[in-house]
Lab assay of single mutants.
Amino acid sequence: QRITLKDYAMRFGQTKTAKDLGVYQSAINKAIHAGRKIFLTINADGSVYAEEVKDGEVKPFPS
């Protein structure tokens, strides 16, 4: 399943989102408010992988 960072954070909370991605909650808040195009893939085992689309390139998040 693929979902935006904002939607994932709204569904699970910023604290869990940060923990799942290995970053601080403040980084999640800042990324959402900056309007960054970050998409999360939720794997069947429950693990989460995030990618950011920037300038036409897709890069892992966090980099």
Rank of each mutant, 00 (worst) to 15 (best):
R2G: 08
I3Q: 06
T4E: 09
T4G: 10
T4C: 07
K6C: 09
K6F: 12
D7V: 05
A9V: 15
M10F: 09
M10N: 15
M10A: 15
M10W: 09
M10G: 14
M10V: 12
R11I: 15
R11A: 10
F12N: 07
F12E: 07
F12L: 04
F12S: 03
G13C: 03
G13F: 01
Q14S: 13
Q14A: 14
T15H: 14
K16G: 03
K16E: 06
K16C: 05
K16D: 03
T17N: 01
T17Y: 01
A18I: 02
A18E: 03
A18D: 01
K19V: 10
K19T: 09
K19Q: 14
K19P: 00
D20F: 04
D20H: 06
D20S: 06
D20N: 05
D20L: 11
D20P: 01
L21H: 01
G22T: 03
G22W: 04
V23Q: 03
V23M: 10
V23Y: 05
Y24L: 14
Y24E: 15
Q25T: 13
Q25W: 12
Q25S: 10
S26Q: 10
S26E: 12
S26G: 12
S26F: 08
A27T: 14
A27M: 14
A27L: 15
I28E: 00
N29G: 13
N29R: 13
N29K: 12
A31S: 05
I32H: 01
I32R: 01
I32W: 02
H33A: 15
H33T: 14
H33E: 15
H33S: 13
H33W: 10
A34N: 10
A34G: 09
A34Y: 07
A34S: 13
G35S: 08
G35K: 11
G35N: 13
R36H: 06
R36L: 13
K37N: 12
I38G: 00
F39D: 03
L40M: 09
L40P: 00
L40T: 02
T41V: 14
I42V: 11
I42W: 06
I42G: 02
A44V: 12
D45Q: 06
D45R: 03
D45S: 06
D45Y: 04
G46E: 05
G46V: 02
G46D: 05
S47V: 08
V48R: 03
V48Q: 01
V48F: 05
Y49V: 13
Y49R: 11
Y49P: 00
E51H: 09
E52T: 03
E52Y: 04
V53P: 02
V53E: 15
V53N: 08
V53Q: 09
G56F: 08
G56Y: 06
G56D: 09
E57S: 12
E57V: 15
V58D: 04
V58S: 10
K59V: 14
P60C: 07
P60W: 05
P60V: 07
F61L: 03
P62G: 07
S63G: 13
S63A: 12
S63C: 11
